[in-house]
Amino acid sequence: MHTQTKPIAIVNVMDNRLFALGLVVLGLALLSVLALRFGLRSMGFTDIWASFVAFDPLNASHIVVQEIRLPRLVAAVLAGASLGMAGALMQGMTRNPLADPGLLGVNAGASLGVVICIMLLGVTNPASFIWVALGGGFLASLIVFFLGGAGRGSPARLILAGAAVSALFLAISRGLLLISQQTLDVYRFWVLGGFDGAQFSTIIALAPFFGIGALLAGLATFSLNALILGQDTAKGLGIRVGLAQLLVGLAIVVLCAATVAMAGPIAFVGLIVPHLARWIAGPDMRWMVGFSACLGACLLVAADLLGRLAIFGGNMQAGVMAALIGGPVLIWLVRRHGVHKL
């Protein structure tokens, strides 16, 4: 904390963070180019460039880039960024480094909502999943919130409540899927699909939710910086704790529900990315959330790219791949630097 006493050092830290953020964004750009370049249909960079500047609707390579790989890339970026931000907010709010959207019931709630939607309404289009995913996510998070002591309990109680509600909702989902084969078929395609079926129509339909979620997340970071010092301290700093928590909660639910509606429940990204982000950005939640968004996008784009390569059978789920890449990184991080107390 010596940096706070030396203004020059703060400038240095800012510079370093900006530099690091620049590097991460550059990495994301590089990964994006690779994601457009590699896949089952081989093509060169000239094809990719031409597909942007001189799109030919009769050229198979142009179509593959513009209508298959590009929406897939955008979907991976949106999902990764959302899960990264949601994870960072979740860990900040609960002050628990183990929290992630999967652990607090939001993903399970959103998934259950989608399962019920497929089963009762016969809906198969991901863009229509958003409202039920939102509803399920909200319901689950409300249950967790009240079981967890309605904001007055300890973060540990909140986590336990989340684990219980997650398990319950997942069990109900699985039970329903066992009963209905038709639902299972749609659900499996949706869950396993990852970014396989990504389309711009779905992305555009969900874009407002990603936008609102990101905006809420940005607003929430300011009060989270105070909340992270403990609720009493936060109150002392003039933060309305209940309102701040509501804001954070809303941001998490919207981000997660939009992601679940688009690509199914993706675990682990929300857990690991904030740790990486904290390692680079330090404890300031504003930076943390920004880095989490960029790193989350990098992780899922890389995972989706690797999952498509032939050595992994050509169709490994991005979520599984993200855990395969992220797991060792997290282990290295924890062994090398320890877990930051929140």
Binding site: G39, L40, R41, V64, I68, D196, G314, N315
Partner: peptide, 12 residues
């Protein structure tokens, strides 16, 4: 002989 159903990539 035991895999009579093969997935097609939308890229080809």
């Amino acid at each position: 002989i035991d895999r009579t159903y093969v997935f097609m990539s939308p890229e080809d």
